[in-house]
Computed example of a mutant assay.
Amino acid sequence: MTDSIDSKLAARGITLPTPAAPVAAYTPVVIAGGMAYLSGQLPFAKGGEVMTGRLGETADVETGRRAAEACGVMVLAQLKAALGSLDRVERIVRLGVFVASTDDFTQQPKVADGASQLMLEIFGDAGRHARSAVGVPVLPLGAMVEIDAVVAIRD
C-alpha cells in the first residue's frame, strides 16, 4: 500500500515535509490500543511559514481549503514519522477541524473539505472519516486552520 500512497502523493505533487515540532508541552502523536491520536496540526505554506488569517475577514473559502489541505499534509507527515510508513494506516477515523473565522462566517464545512478530500484521494475508502468543523476566533500562531486526527493503525 505504501507504493500506492507514495504514488498518489507524488501524482498530486505532494512531498511530505519534516513534521512540525510541538510548540508547547505535548507530543504530536500518541499511539495506544491500535489507534494514533494526532495533536492539532497547523497549515504550513511551501516556504515554511504558517498560513495565517481569519475566514470571513482576511481569507476566502478557497484559501481556507488550501490551508486545511496543508494541515492534512502535516497530519500525513506526522503519521509517517510516528509509524515509519503510511502503509500502517488502516483508516482515517476522525478529523477535528478548527477554522479561525468571524462570527458571521458559516462555511467551515467547505473549508474542512480541503483536508477531507485529501484523505479520500490518498487512502480511498479508508480515508472516509467522521468529522467536526467548527469556527473559533483565534488559533495558535494566528493560523487560519488547525486539524487534529484519530487514525486506526495496523501492527
Rank of each mutant, 00 (worst) to 15 (best):
Y37R: 09
L38I: 02
Q41C: 14
L42H: 06
L42N: 08
L42S: 06
A45K: 15
A45T: 12
K46H: 11
G47R: 15
G48S: 08
V50D: 07
G53E: 03
L55F: 04
L55Y: 00
T58C: 08
T58W: 07
D60R: 15
V61I: 15
E62A: 15
R65D: 01
A67E: 01
A67K: 05
C71Q: 01
G72S: 12
V75D: 01
A77I: 07
A77C: 09
L79E: 00
L79A: 05
A82C: 08
A82P: 09
L83H: 03
L83F: 05
G84Q: 07
G84P: 02
G84K: 01
S85F: 10
L86M: 11
D87N: 11
R91Y: 07
I92G: 06
I92C: 09
L95Q: 11
G96F: 12
G96K: 11
V97T: 13
F98A: 14
V99T: 13
V99A: 11
V99C: 11
A100W: 04
D103L: 08
D103F: 14
T106D: 12
Q107V: 08
P109D: 12
P109E: 13
K110R: 15
A112F: 07
G114S: 10
A115S: 15
S116H: 13
Q117A: 15
L118A: 08
